[in-house]
Design a protein around this nucleic acid. Structure first.
Length: 574
RNA sequence: GGGAGCGUAGCUCAAUUGGCAGAGCAAUGGACUCUUAAUCCAUAGGUUGAAGGUUCGAUUCCUUCCGCUCUCACCA
């Protein structure tokens, strides 16, 4: 990770030297102009069921593909290489007979990781793998740096087979890890593979996949594992770890699904400012940036909420935005300074309608991204199947704190006393001592309930104190028409019927300004223009925000937000 | 910001109480025209994250710094 070592320079020089030799043979090592007409995955699918004899008779093709060489097995005057493009990986057989002396000399200058173009016909190798017999070999890009360790190629299996193979691979890995002597590991591995294959003899395909899967597991282990290097040089991580590619493909699928889901319901996708003159829409500390010509400071947005609601005032009564928010706060496995948020607003809907919508959207998203409503996350299985519980916050607390009664929610002293039981530091205890009923209720929820909510659960009836933009409940002015969705002990969504009473909103803004004056850092500014917009009339509206990164973590079994963000923020290296 | 842990060859990892820094893969040279973690023979590859200290001797013990991971706090 430090400066380039002599070894690194030497390895690079060796590859650069092969580039020079290519030039001497009349080939630009970074040339252009090869236009592949087919994809590896396409060719594999087309001939999936063709036998070796059928292919020998038909000689289908010629096909042309281009991609990165992820594996080379050389036999002197012939060799097998595996070429990977965006669709998958296809084996190619090169031999001196077919390419001629000149063409074969180019192949001899190949390094793993280079890009090549291949033209040839399809056949099945003796071991049954669909392979392209290269009639033309074109070096396309010489790579100066070797990929880290082994590439891992894709293997196609049904989910059931994949699960059985996974169990078998785990057994083989355990056997290998138990053998301390590296020299004996090969034999241990062979024996374990044979044993696992015997167990799966009822499923020939799965049994056959075991050695490949073991190889893949081994390759993943040989590939880039250093977390820092993976995050700093994501391109290397992506090109060497198939599992990482899969996670980000799933992320894209998730976002595409959400767009289609909302588009189909008449929502309009919009883009609102990322640079705000005021801090608004959430309780968070902002990044400050500067515009030179206007000579003003601006805040990177912490939420798009007030702009989206202005659009509802303007008549776009179903809008959504999927975009970045920026919060100048701590970094952790669950927090990145910039993160992606879905916010959507629907006029004439209530927060009850949004619970229905959310349940539908996320259960369908789970199926779309993972193939089913039951999603594995670490030790747990999350069930996204519809019928999620909807529990008022106070009820959720009462269910778990047995010596608390419904009437105690009027008694701030009693609430503080219960909260004190879990307050550990002196600072926590001091904070509890000054809390009002709403704040204490919210704290009790965090202390006793939040972490226990594994399957998706709606919590409703939030105290008005920490909901400055939400509509008051008609029957109980102490609570708001709001819910948050919890899953795996984390907040996934936050929604409420919007406050559209300009007078009430003005008072709540003033409350925020006063809190700021008292020294509270995470408050909203007074937004006079937003009040003015409400004075023009916002129809009754419900709105919701969903953290896309965290949802993506749940659906991809990722345990750090950095595993679902392509380029997470890291401290620059000295 | 607090606490705990980690950093050894290009990659993945070893190194006994503080006693000659090793292995597999990758690389280099050679053999090999159906391999798929190809195989076989040979070779080379290191400022053990950085700086300082203790010691006859430090990858190992101590201090400081850099980076990362986990965790707590703030937060979504």
């Amino acid at each position: 990770m430090s400066d380039e070592s002599d070894v690194e320079k030497k390895l690079k020089d060796e590859r650069a030297g092969k580039g020079e030799k290519l030039k001497a043979l009349g080939v630009n090592p970074w040339g252009n102009g090869f236009r592949p007409e087919h994809l590896a995955g396409e060719i594999l699918a087309k001939h999936e069921h063709d036998t070796a004899e059928q292919l020998d008779a038909a000689k289908p093709g010629p096909y042309s593909i281009a991609g990165r060489v992820v594996s080379v097995r050389d036999f002197g005057k012939a060799g097998f290489i595996v070429v990977q493009d965006r669709s998958g990986a296809l084996q190619v057989h090169v031999k001196k007979d077919a390419l001629g002396d000149a063409g074969f000399a180019l192949y001899k200058l190949l390094d793993v990781g280079d890009f090549v173009g291949i033209r040839g016909t399809a056949f099945r190798s003796k071991s049954g793998e669909l392979t392209l017999a290269a009639a033309e070999y074109r070096p396309l890009t010489k790579t100066l740096r070797a990929p880290p360790g082994k590439f891992s190629a894709e293997i196609k299996l049904t989910p059931e087979q994949a699960e059985r193979v996974k169990v078998a691979v785990a057994a083989v890995s355990a056997a290998i890890d138990a053998e301390a002597d590296p020299a004996k590991r090969q034999k241990v591995s062979d024996d374990a593979v044979a044993a696992q294959q015997a167990l799966l003899k009822d499923d020939a395909v799965a049994a056959k996949a075991i050695p490949q899967a073991v190889a893949k597991a081994w390759a993943e282990k040989q590939a880039l594992a250093d977390t820092e290097e993976r995050y700093r040089r994501r391109y290397v991580d992506l090109l060497s770890n198939a599992g990482v590619r899969e996670v980000f493909l799933k992320r894209t699928k998730l976002v595409q699904f959400i767009r289609r889901f909302l588009d189909a319901r008449g929502y309009l996708e919009v883009e609102t400012p990322m640079m705000h003159p005021l801090v608004s829409g959430a309780a968070a500390r902002p990044f400050i940036t500067r515009h030179n010509t206007y000579d003003i400071d601006l805040y990177m947005r912490i939420a798009p909420e007030l702009y989206l609601k202005r659009l509802v005032v303007g008549g776009f009564d179903r809008v959504y935005e999927i975009n970045r928010n920026f919060r100048n706060e701590g970094v952790s496995t669950k927090h990145n300074p910039e993160f992606t948020m879905l916010e959507f607003y629907e006029a004439y809907a209530t927060y009850h309608d949004l619970m229905d919508l959310t349940e539908e959207m996320l259960s369908e998203a789970a199926v779309h991204v993972t193939g089913g409503v039951k999603v594995k996350y670490g030790e747990h299985t999350i069930d996204f199947g519809k019928g999620w519980p909807r529990i008022p916050m106070r009820q959720a607390i009462l269910d778990r704190v047995k010596d608390l009664g419904a009437d105690d929610f009027k008694d701030v002293a009693k609430l503080r006393a219960v909260a004190l039981r879990k307050a550990e530091t002196p600072a926590d205890k001091a904070a509890v001592a000054t809390m009002n009923v709403g704040e204490a209720t919210a704290l009790l929820f965090e202390q006793y309930v939040e972490h226990e909510l594994i399957n998706p659960t709606f919590i409703t009836e939030f105290p008005v104190e920490n909901s400055p933009l939400a509509r008051r409940n008609d029957d109980n002015p102490a609570i708001t028409d709001r819910f948050e969705l919890f899953c795996m002990g984390r907040e996934i969504a936050n929604a409420f019927s919007e406050l559209n009473d300009p007078v009430d909103q003005e008072q709540r803004f003033r409350g925020q300004v006063e809190a700021k004056a008292r020294g509270q850092q995470e408050t909203m500014d007074y937004d006079a223009d937003y009040i003015r917009a409400l004075e023009h009339g916002m129809p009754p509206t419900a709105g919701e925000g969903i953290g896309i990164d965290r949802l993506c973590m749940l659906l991809t079994d990722s345990h750090s937000i950095r595993d679902v963000i392509l380029f997470p923020l890291l401290r620059p290296q000295a």
